[in-house]
């Protein structure tokens, strides 16, 4: 009996709820930690980045307008779907990051739990980030958070999956939409996550995932006038400075990179970094 020949997966981008190849037709080799070939990943182009921004903008109205309860349900659904494909992700993370199966499993489990943590925040964040303001006059005055808009996320390079989930979930749970540049050398868990997102009732375009050269993809995103914010988690210092400088052109909100233990309690910092505060005044009188 000959051994069965495995069916390889063609990894694709995730843009606007669809799984296109790069419009450039390019791919690059992805290897495991020891240098063995794992797969070819799409080498996304500047145009792919632009298409992703268009998709994210198009999705923003609906996603930000959905009820917080609904967004929480969908994020929880992501966790459910991920739990069901745990083994696949454990294998992919182990390959991508050169981890033992046990350590990879811990990363995947933490990622599932992270989706659950952020799912619960959807209908609570306004209560901790908002305020009723006792102004000195006959006015009703209320401040409430709103999503910033389209957020470009440079995913962490060293934590291809837990790191990715840790930066993506807080961006979208509050109603932002995201364009994510996956870890350059380990994009496969991210590209597989797209398959989970696509089957979790997440509207197309809310999350758009690109693989390729981080510098090549993040530069047009940082300069893009229809991107509202930038998470530089996966940018090195030189790139981060370059991107933050470019981001100044339309005053994107920028979350600078910093050393992060992705397994630690995430707190609310990332959640609050991509929110605007809107304050509404109205007179009170008869």
């Amino acid at each position: 009996m000959s051994e069965r020949l495995a069916v390889f997966k063609t990894y694709k981008l995730y843009v606007g709820g669809k799984f296109p190849r790069s419009e450039s037709g390019r791919v690059y080799e992805v290897t495991d930690a020891k240098g063995s070939w794992l797969a070819n990943a799409p080498l996304a182009s500047r145009k792919d980045a632009r298409d992703a921004v268009v998709a994210a903008r198009k999705a923003f109205g609906g996603w930000s307008g959905a009820t917080a309860y609904n967004r929480g349900q969908i994020l929880y659904r992501v966790a459910e779907m991920l739990e069901g494909r745990r083994d696949q992700f454990v294998a992919e993370v182990a390959d991508a990051e050169g981890l033992s199966k046990a350590k990879a499993a811990a990363q995947v489990d933490a990622a599932v739990d992270r989706w659950v943590w952020y799912a619960g925040w959807s209908d609570k964040v306004a209560q901790i980030a908002g305020s009723s303001n006792p102004v000195a006059g006959p006015y009703f005055n209320l401040s409430a958070p709103e999503p910033t808009g389209v957020v470009a996320v440079v995913a962490p390079q060293e934590s291809s999956f837990l790191g990715l989930v840790s930066v993506l979930a807080p961006v979208i749970v509050t109603g932002n939409t995201a364009v994510v540049v996956a870890a350059e050398r380990a994009p496969l868990p991210a590209l597989s996550l797209a398959e989970v997102l696509a089957t979790s009732d997440l509207p197309g375009g809310v999350v758009n995932l690109l693989s390729g050269r981080t510098a090549e993809l993040s530069a047009p995103l940082a300069a893009h006038q229809d991107v509202n914010a930038l998470d530089l988690a996966g940018a090195d210092a030189a790139l981060a400075t370059e991107l933050e400088t470019a981001a100044a052109d339309n005053l994107k909100r920028v979350l600078r990179p910093r050393a992060t233990d992705w397994t630690a309690d995430p707190g609310t910092d990332r959640l609050l970094s991509f929110l605007e505060t809107k304050t509404v005044w109205h007179p009170m009188g008869v």
Binding site: N133, V135, G137, S143, T277, K278, T279, W281, H282
Partner: peptide, 19 residues
């Protein structure tokens, strides 16, 4: 927009976030 004034305008107060 960061501040919405309805049936009023250009009202400011130290307790009210502006930006």
């Amino acid at each position: 927009a960061g501040v919405i004034w309805s049936n009023t305008f250009n009202k400011f107060d130290p307790t009210s976030p502006f930006g």
